[in-house]
């Protein structure tokens, strides 16, 4: 059984896509979500970035031993980091001026507790979960780069998708061209359509393990 919501280890994410991506990426790295003896976080999907930002300070105040937060940078990483820093400062936790490239981890309020932040896609660029997943498209994939060109061309021809959602459109287009078209992210990871050992994936998994698995 995966960890219960009462677990003192908690990972806060925006929605179910983030949740399933993380679960299946970690599974491919041998992480056992069902092992009751392992330190495993309960993954709480907040239901949007606004809710998540509200929940961050309340969770940081809680009796948790480990808290992780995975959130999209969206258009401006500096703005998003400032929002997180503000929320943490409200409960008395000082975050560094800018996020660590390999994911930020600092001490929590309770003695011995740790809190971590990961800004999608890579703690340094604007973007979202879908940008991160684009980095998990196999480098030798015949249609990887083409997906980007196709979306640009589609928009030129009048497709209503927006520039700010470019990464989303690209990823869903690419997923539509697989043997089983349109698998959800977690399932596509499980089906090995995405790689699990690109540089971006390894950095994320490293952050996750440092936060939750290391003593």
């Amino acid at each position: 059984m995966p960890p219960a919501s009462s677990s003192l280890h908690r990972l806060l994410v925006e929605g179910p896509d983030d949740q399933h991506t993380i679960i299946h990426l970690l599974l491919r790295h041998g992480f056992d979500w069902d092992d009751p003896t392992a330190v495993r976080p309960y993954i709480q999907a907040s239901g949007g970035v606004d809710r998540l930002l509200e929940e961050v300070p309340v969770t940081l105040k809680g009796p948790y031993e480990r808290v992780g937060v995975v959130v999209d940078s969206d258009l401006d990483l500096t703005d998003r980091w400032a929002q997180l820093r503000h929320g943490a400062a409200r409960v008395g936790i000082a975050l560094p001026v800018s996020p660590e490239p390999g994911g930020t981890i600092v001490d929590g309020l309770r003695p011995g507790s740790k809190i971590g932040f990961w800004l999608m896609p890579d703690n340094s660029s604007p973007g979202m979960l879908e940008n991160f997943l684009r980095l998990l498209i196999p480098p030798d994939d015949p249609c990887g780069p083409y997906a980007g060109e196709a979306v640009t061309e589609a928009r030129r021809r009048g497709a209503p998708c927006k520039e700010k959602d470019h990464a989303k459109s690209v990823l869903y287009s690419w997923l539509a061209w697989q043997e089983e078209p349109g698998l959800p992210f977690g399932t596509a990871l499980k089906a090995r359509i995405f790689t699990h050992d690109s540089e971006a994936a390894l950095l994320f998994v490293g952050w996750f393990r440092r936060l939750f698995a290391d003593p």
């Binding site: 919501s5 009462s6 003192l8 908690r10 709480q44 907040s46 809710r51 509200e54 929940e55 300070p57 309340v58 969770t59 105040k61 809680g62 009796p63 948790y64 309020l109 309770r110 003695p111």
Partner: peptide, 26 residues
């Protein structure tokens, strides 16, 4: 919290956020 020098205080707004998100306060 055991051995902490002060208590952690929650506002009512925070209690509402915690209830909605099933966030532990105890």
């Amino acid at each position: 919290d055991k051995d902490a020098p002060r208590t952690v205080v929650y506002t009512m707004d925070e209690i509402a956020v915690a209830a909605r998100g099933s966030i532990e306060v105890r």
